[in-house]
Nucleic acid binder design. Structure first.
Length: 864
RNA sequence: GGACACUUAGUUCAGCGGGAGAACGCUUCCUUCACACGGAAGAGGUCACAGGUUCGAUCCCUGUAGUGUCCACCA
């Protein structure tokens, strides 16, 4: 017997361990069709946040749903080493432990990092368990494990040999705190307050000068020229002359190039080829030197004379003061301008010329774009996110993949110590003593991009790879389409000539109650484990997956988690009722529609309709819509109507009536449990195991399937009239301040054949006596209610005036409806152009309303 | 500058070419034998604004305003 109150903690305890130990999460049943997903591997940097919970719950819903539909489901778990992020955290930990991290060796650091990884992997495992994720742990992977390293090297060598990976001198984003290069998308541009400095550049040998504006005076040590627009009349006379750089007194030429915007600043731009991407292009075009003026920690280097060793911002201050002293200072403007910051260290990123490894994007991106026009394309759900992907692919620039870190896949390139020749190969050269391996590692996303196939054993043609690749579905958030989704797609197309997944389901972000992004600095993050401890995993899972339209952001609102929990309690208690009334030796049978009473048939109709709608929306990954169909069925149809009615059926002396009711109650309850199960597996399992007949676990069950043969909607009208009458009698009592159980005399004029015994239900729920009468109902004293197929008269002694007032109200309502119908039907364009069914429907409505009006008028006449 | 969303009840959000929906909150009543984490009844909305398409627009199109996100970025 179930307890009166649903207690999520009791319900959730132990279930996960049982599922896991029974091997229910393990894929491999070859008698079934395969369905596969890989988890987006969380970073081993810390605890999982509520966004992870949302994402993995969506996947768990898909996995459990597909498994119930008879697929051999593989949901492969794993984690990401998260290069920069993890290295930063491990370094910080070491520093806090008093370790001098400047003296630590690569090997010592890696040892500490692996220790960190083990610790955090444990945390993540326990979080996954609490959430109830049906992950196949026998196949778990890590982006830095040996197998994946083999895959990474394979791809690197292959791309290198095809000329798609190259080493080059480019302006990259340098993070001077982490002391590593960053790819463009690891840089966050934010509008910071800054200053625009205006300086005099004196023309050599003349008394004239140019004014040049800059936001970064410290880069003046790397300037090679001043550029003006050739069409700029103000500066034409200076082109070809030399000016004096006020920072170091060097003479630099004035050149003309279209790039310069005449209207911006002073129209004269200083050019620093080694520290600005656009200046770099100009430097290349006109064959200038590209002097680098920063050290790796963004202090000034030996090219900066007396400023050598100063921090870049300190240098800026001192330099400006000195230029003032020299009389070359014009003015300072306070401005707000976009400044790039490192995603991880938040340091101001310094554009810096540097030798790095790049992936040549154009051919790969074009391939991905071309593939989207074929049948083998990746389907985005919702569809609009395909545009984000396409936009990214169309604008992709070469991807800087080398990182000056230790925590990551070391680039398989070897430099000959004597000749400097570069060898790229899977394994070190045989005469390794003559070589030195590249010390850089690869961008984390390089290994993440291979995740859907590297985890399955690729490049080996393993059984898993053959069976589960390409995967079926990828679930991820829209903010990661650039970083990850696009890279998985082009890497898989390049290496496997096939998409990595058939569909990618994009979900929104979980925001805080005020709609703000959750972040550490705001301290507005929600710890899923705390929520689970309070309300249970099921309530959290249900809340997170059913409260937003697909791809739309949602807010975390605690009240809504409570509402979810209340819903589960409702299901719990309806189950408690059903289980308490079922006879001890209950045996479920297939529904035989011939035996069903109209009430049973009605609820079966509703149930089948619900199964159909839920399944349709599950297929579309629209969990909001799917769950709402089920919710309405549970509350309105099952609990409010059928369950109450069943109390009357079960008080019958007729064993047949009772048996059919048992069967119907059981079927409804079981299907509700099965339909809610993917969302809330714990409570579903608990209720399932309490059913009088069940398998070892709900995980072995089959998803309910819509069965058209069970639907006979012919009874719906009878049942709906019955419900309407009950509702109206109750309302009548409230309006007239009568007790809910007051007995009234009801007269009924039926225009359809009602089912046998309907009166019993009517009397039980209205506490009243029911008499069938004929058309003479209009002659009788009392309140008249009109339905499509019946008229109800509540016999009463109320004053004539009251009754007339009510009748007048109803008359005017009917008249309004008639007017609306007539207006539509009198429009010749409506008749001519609207679909015929619509016209017919309106005509029928009009007829009904006119009949009702006639009855009301007749009644009114009789009364007065 | 470019792209993509969003604007519907007090709040948070669904939805839809043909009479506006849910949850929470609010008001009134009810501890009746599944559930007070409940039940019954109810109040509450010119569906941002302006045009257009259409027989008909909250829904489709265009524009405007506001909000949010992403990409790019000017020395």
């Amino acid at each position: 017997m179930l307890e009166k109150r649903y207690d999520p903690h009791k319900v959730e305890e132990g279930k996960y361990e049982t599922w896991k130990s029974k091997g229910y999460f393990t894929a491999g049943d070859k008698s079934k069709q395969a369905f596969s997903m890989v988890i987006p591997p969380p970073n081993v940097t810390g605890k999982l946040h509520i966004g992870h919970t949302c994402q993995t719950t969506i996947q768990d819903i898909v996995a459990r749903y597909k498994k119930m539909q008879g697929y051999d489901v593989l949901w492969l778990p794993g984690m990401d080493h998260a290069g920069i992020a993890t290295q930063a955290k491990v370094m910080e930990k070491l520093r806090n432990n008093g370790v001098d991290v400047t003296k630590i060796t690569r090997e010592e650091f890696l040892k500490a990092a692996w220790g960190w990884k083990d610790e955090y992997a444990n945390n993540i495992h326990s979080q996954w368990a609490k959430m109830g994720l049906s992950l196949d742990y026998t196949r778990e992977r890590f982006t830095l494990d040996d197998g994946l390293n083999y895959a990474v090297r394979t791809v690197f060598v292959s791309l290198y040999n095809k000329g798609l990976i190259y080493q080059g001198e480019r302006i990259i984003n340098w993070d001077p705190v982490q002391m590593t290069a960053l790819s463009n998308i690891e840089v966050i541009h934010q509008n910071d307050p800054g200053q625009m400095f205006y300086f005099k550049y004196n023309v050599v040998g003349e008394k004239d000068y140019l004014i040049v504006a800059t936001t970064r005076p410290e880069t003046m040590f790397g300037d090679v020229c001043v550029v003006v627009n050739p069409k700029d009349k103000r500066y034409k006379k200076y082109v070809g002359k030399k000016v004096i750089n006020p920072a170091n007194g060097e003479q630099i030429p004035v050149i003309a190039d279209e790039y310069v915007d005449i209207s911006f600043g002073t129209g004269a731009m200083k050019c620093t080829p080694a520290h600005d991407p656009n200046d770099f292009i100009i430097g290349e075009k006109y064959h200038f030197e590209k002097p680098i003026i920063f050290n790796k920690d963004a202090t000034m280097n030996e090219k900066c004379g007396k400023y050598q060793g100063l921090d870049r911002f300190e240098c800026r201050k001192v330099l400006v003061e000195n230029i003032k002293k020299d009389g070359n200072f014009i003015k300072i403007e306070n401005i707000v301008h976009p400044v790039g910051h490192s995603e991880r260290s938040h340091a101001v990123v310094e554009p810096m010329l540097s030798k790095q490894w790049f992936v040549k994007m154009r051919p790969l991106a074009d391939q991905a774009l071309a593939n989207q026009k074929t049948n083998g394309k990746v389907d985005f759900v919702p569809k609009r996110f395909e545009k984000t992907f396409i936009q990214w692919m169309e604008n992709a620039e070469d991807w800087c993949i080398s990182r000056q870190l230790w925590w990551g896949h070391r680039i398989p390139a070897y430099y000959n110590k004597h000749t400097g020749e570069v060898v790229v190969s899977m394994d070190p050269p045989k005469d390794m003593e003559n070589y030195e391996q590249e010390s850089d590692v690869l961008d984390t996303w390089f290994s993440s991009a291979l995740w859907p196939f590297s985890t399955l054993g690729w490049p080996n043609k393993t059984e898993d790879f053959e069976r589960y690749f390409p995967t079926d579905t990828m679930v991820t958030a829209y903010d990661i389409i650039f970083f990850w989704v696009s890279r998985m797609i082009f890497q898989s197309l390049e290496m496997n000539h096939v998409r990595p997944f058939k569909e990618v389901v994009i979900h929104g972000l979980v925001r805080d109650e005020l709609g703000r992004k959750m972040s550490k600095s705001l301290g507005n993050g929600v710890d899923p484990i705390e929520v689970i401890d309070k309300y249970g995993a099921d309530a959290l899972r249900y809340f997170l997956t059913t409260n937003a339209a697909p791809g739309q952001d949602m807010r975390y609102i605690e009240e809504k988690v409570i509402a979810s929990s209340n819903y589960l309690n409702k299901i719990w208690n309806s189950a408690r009722y059903v289980l308490s009334v079922l006879p001890e030796k209950f045996e479920p049978k297939e529904v035989n529609v011939k035996e069903l009473s109209p009430l049973d048939q009605w609820i079966i109709n509703r149930l089948e309709k619900t199964i159909k709608a839920v399944t349709l929306n599950m297929e579309k990954y629209d969990f909001n819509a799917a769950s709402s169909h089920l919710y309405n069925f549970v509350y309105d149809d099952f609990c409010s109507e059928y369950l109450e009615m069943s109390k009357v059926s079960l008080s019958s002396d007729d064993e047949k009536v009772k048996n059919v009711t048992y069967q119907t109650l059981f079927k409804c309850l079981k299907d509700i449990i099965l339909l809610i199960y993917p969302y809330t597996p714990f409570i579903a399992e608990e209720l399932y195991l309490n059913l009088p007949v069940h398998l070892e676990s709900i995980m072995l069950e089959t998803y309910p399937k819509y069965d058209a043969h069970l639907v006979h909607s012919i009874v719906d009208k009878q049942v709906e009239v019955l419900f309407s009458i009950i509702r109206d009698v109750r309302n009548y009592k409230i309006e007239n301040k009568l007790a809910p159980n007051a007995s009234l005399d009801l007269s009924l004029n039926l225009r359809i054949k009602m089912f046998d015994g309907y009166q019993t239900y009517l009397e039980r729920f209205t506490f009243s006596k029911v008499k069938e009468v004929d058309d003479s109902i209009v002659n009788m004293r009392g309140e008249l209610k009109i339905y499509d197929n019946a008229d109800l008269l509540i016999v009463n002694e109320a004053g004539k005036e009251d009754i007339l007032k009510r009748i007048d109200k109803e008359i005017s309502e009917e008249e309004n409806e008639i007017l609306r119908c007539q207006k539509m039907l009198s429009n010749p364009n409506f008749i001519a152009k609207a679909p015929k069914e619509k016209v017919k429907l309106e005509e029928e409505k009009l007829k009904t309303h006119q009949e009702n009006l006639a009855l009301l008028k007749e009644k009114k006449e009789k009364l007065s």
